[in-house]
Nucleic acid binder design. Structure first.
Lengths: 157, 157
DNA sequence: GTGGCTGCAAAGGATTTGCACTAAC
DNA sequence: GTTAGTGCAAATCCTTTGCAGCCAC
């Protein structure tokens, strides 16, 4: 994650907070930095790991993630295992997820053609699309045949 | 839901159970019938409502839904509110969901073009697709402009 | 100083699990 | 009869909330 993107996110969050008469606190700044420094996909649990030692409670993590979502800095991701995953939005192109149900690896694919598709689908019903979440489930052929999968996940959780 | 589809589902479930040396119980048969008779989208909670009086515990519902999922009779649906929804698979064409973030109505749209798309995406990475989940978020223009939405949801939860 | 923020611990809600009893085969 | 299934209640997991003290502004 580039320094500029972290800065961009930090600024956006500060502006958002000010506009809502909310405060820029130590905890909020640290969480934002950690999220944009280290992680692509994360859960509350992994994030808590990564701020261990910074003295930030889980309650604050939940509350802060909520704010960042409202601010549009992070998004919820459905990876199909029931857990709540997030990813930050700056610094990587929008993408969808391909999840292997054999080896559980997660691959990211550019949104590409789905943009047109979702627009067509929404317009057919008279709506304007504002977002989408697409998860494609796949199986490794290698795994099925030889019991191993050598394919590297583009992003491993 | 047509009688033939209920029969088809019942048979499939029985075969599945036998093959795994599991038992065809009163509870499993009732749950299957209720699911295929009445509901398109449902949660454990609504299902529990619909078998009230049949003496089936919540634990059994959870355990049975798990089996039906393995059997391929029902699927989990992501409607984006964190709750776990299911839908049965027989008797209606595969479809995706379009969720209005203004009025919370849910519309179903035929899978159509996404089949090709997901195949292309999966094959680009060397996988075979086995399923997908697509949720498109939209806003009602009417609601935004006039504070009301007269559009009928194709399937309301 | 004021009003929002935080940590803590308790509460909530959904789902899972251990166990003794019951039912399917 | 044997083996799995069920109901119940307890346990677990994740998330939210109430409150007293703390910190940004």
């Amino acid at each position: 994650m580039s320094v500029e993107h972290i800065q961009q996110a930090t600024d956006a969050f500060r502006v958002f907070l000010k506009r809502k008469d909310l405060k820029v606190t130590r905890q909020r700044e640290i969480l934002l930095r950690r999220i944009f420094q280290r992680e692509e996909h994360f859960t509350v649990e992994t994030l808590e790991e990564h701020v261990k030692g910074d003295g930030i409670s889980r309650a604050t993590i939940y509350r802060t993630l909520q704010l960042m979502r409202e601010c549009g800095l992070i998004e919820e991701v459905d990876l199909g295992d029931g857990r709540r995953y997030y990813e930050h939005v700056f610094g990587h192109a929008p993408h969808d997820h391909l999840v292997c149900i054999d080896c559980n690896k997660v691959f990211e694919v550019p949104v590409g053609d789905i943009s047109d598709l979702r627009k067509r689908i929404a317009q057919r019903l008279g709506f304007s699309p504002v977002g989408h979440s697409l998860r494609i489930e796949v199986r490794c052929e290698e795994l099925r045949k030889h019991g191993v999968c050598n394919r590297e996940a583009i992003k491993v959780l």
